[in-house]
Design a protein around this nucleic acid. Structure first.
Lengths: 291, 291
DNA sequence: AATCCCGATACCGCAACGGTATCTTTGCTG
DNA sequence: CAGCAAAGATACCGTTGCGGTATCGGGATT
């Protein structure tokens, strides 16, 4: 039977395109994943992955299942939230952009939990295609994300200003330089946000994108080994990196990209005492003279 | 973790309001269901059922989970169908109204499978609130259901005409009579379709409903022990009963209810060779002089 | 008070899950 | 082209947990 557990596994494999990395991300070993995929394949009567010596590629059916599984798991999460809400439980859903906000979120959530022990917290990791991390459709109550994006109806408080940088392979001709400008990167593959995403957000990142070619693979990918930045085959990311980069990668700041602002955000019309409290905690945590 | 298996179990329990009956319906024993519910309850941190000596009632949270689980399982089914469709597999989804159509569906599906071995078949059981069993929103390709309902855009072929009857407890004063009229039943509780359902369909059944009071419990319930009729605490159903009624129940035809027509139906604009083939098989199976 | 019925619990065998070790294949490389 | 490295598949194993039978406890009914 098609169980959610198998779908969780498959999503990890599909995103990593690699059984071993997926296993690491799931904190388990690789063989059960082989079995899980085979189980799904025999259950659905369909080949999901094209295995190779370098990893695994999605077949059309695999891609379909990846999309379906994502939404299904998301719907399951929402269902869970609605059920607990129906029981009178108070929940705060924190949306986080899949970059530095991840670790930030859990840290702030811990503080929040100390102050509001009875409120249960749910963290929803959104990918780069939605800078509001679901604020607009009620999928999140409060978000840790980045400006600029179309913020009408959204209240924001700036936490930190981060220069935008680029991640390079150590063997790159440009590696070793601390700063670069966009022109240095002309002609390289780049990441590109899909159409239909927030226009302001897209324009900001396309400022970088316009110098490069269109990418060949999927549009945005989050790399979990390095939660402090969005990497993609040695492409654009966000400084500062507090964690060390994986071996063989270096970092250079792009001097002509306007800085990206880490913010706490919420839908203005859904502002609540809990949301205010969380925003307050977040702003305090980043106040310069905190002592 | 909240797995689909647990939700399937919970849905059965919620509908039967009885662990034992749910176990029978799931072809398993009762103790694992106790465990499953407890597992869900601890996982969600919520009480789902109020247990009593006569069965189990849903708490508000339980009702919420019931709704969520239904849609989630449905979505999982659709997801599965879309994935196999993406692999180029051809699927025919047969919607069945939760009464006599159930058994009819599997029987016709068997014939259909013999004729089209490569087409995979999915049977979708719909409840009484949607006489089209999802034809309109693409949830089903072809339906075994009953007239009358609002059939604009829907093509139908009549398979059989069934008088409408009422199921009575053996200790009922009216039990033993073969025929009744609606007036005989004045003042009794009755089943009632929720607002927003197909108006023609609702009006038809409200013709019966109008003589009775409003029911107290949930609006429609399907009884699985008797797949040949919709029963509800000794309320209205559809003749003929080819299967014996459970002990303690009898059956009387309502002479002043217009008959209900068993039909095969499909969305006219989505008519396809497969749909035509299925309809043809269905009509042939019910032709009087078949020999 | 005795009985009945329902859900909960205890316990058991077995299927399935995840882990370790190893194999096969494939792409790369000297 | 031989050898190596890496990735997924397979074999096997200990443990978990699922579903089954037997039984218990507690309301409701008579």
């Amino acid at each position: 039977m098609m169980e959610l557990r198998l779908l969780r596994y498959f999503v990890a494999i599909a995103e990593e395109r690699h059984f071993g990395r997926a296993a690491a991300r799931l904190h388990m070993s690789q063989p059960p994943l082989s079995r899980a995929v085979k189980q799904l394949e025999t259950d659905l009567g369909v080949v999901l992955l094209r295995r190779s010596a370098t990893g695994a590629e999605l077949t059309p059916a695999g891609n379909a299942l990846y999309m379906e599984a994502r939404t299904l798991l998301e719907q399951a999460e929402q269902a869970r939230a609605r059920v607990t809400a129906a029981a009178g439980a108070v929940t705060l859903t924190i949306g986080t952009l899949a970059d530095s906000a991840g670790e930030t979120g859990t840290r702030l959530a811990a503080t929040f939990r100390r102050r509001h022990p009875k409120v249960s917290i749910r963290i929803r990791e959104a990918d780069f295609t939605d800078p509001t991390t679901g604020l607009r459709n009620g999928l999140a109550d409060v978000a840790l994300t980045r400006l600029p994006f179309d913020d009408i109806g959204i209240s924001t408080r700036v936490l930190r200003s981060d220069p935008v940088g680029v991640v390079l392979r150590a063997d790159d001709p440009l590696a070793g330089r601390d700063t670069l400008c966009l022109a240095d990167l002309a002609g390289r593959p780049w990441f590109q946000l899909p159409e239909g995403t927030d226009p302001v957000w897209r324009a900001y990142w396309n400022g970088a994108t316009s110098v490069g070619e269109r990418p060949a693979g999927p549009v945005v990918r989050t790399v979990n080994e390095c939660t402090q930045a969005v990497l993609w085959n040695g492409m654009v990311g966000i400084a500062p990196l507090t964690h060390a980069l994986p071996d063989g990668l270096t970092w250079a700041i792009l001097t002509d990209m306007p800085p990206s602002l880490l913010v706490v955000a919420w839908a203005t019309e859904h502002e609540s005492p809990l949301v205010r409290s969380f925003a307050h905690i977040a702003v305090n945590a980043y106040r310069p003279a905190q002592t």
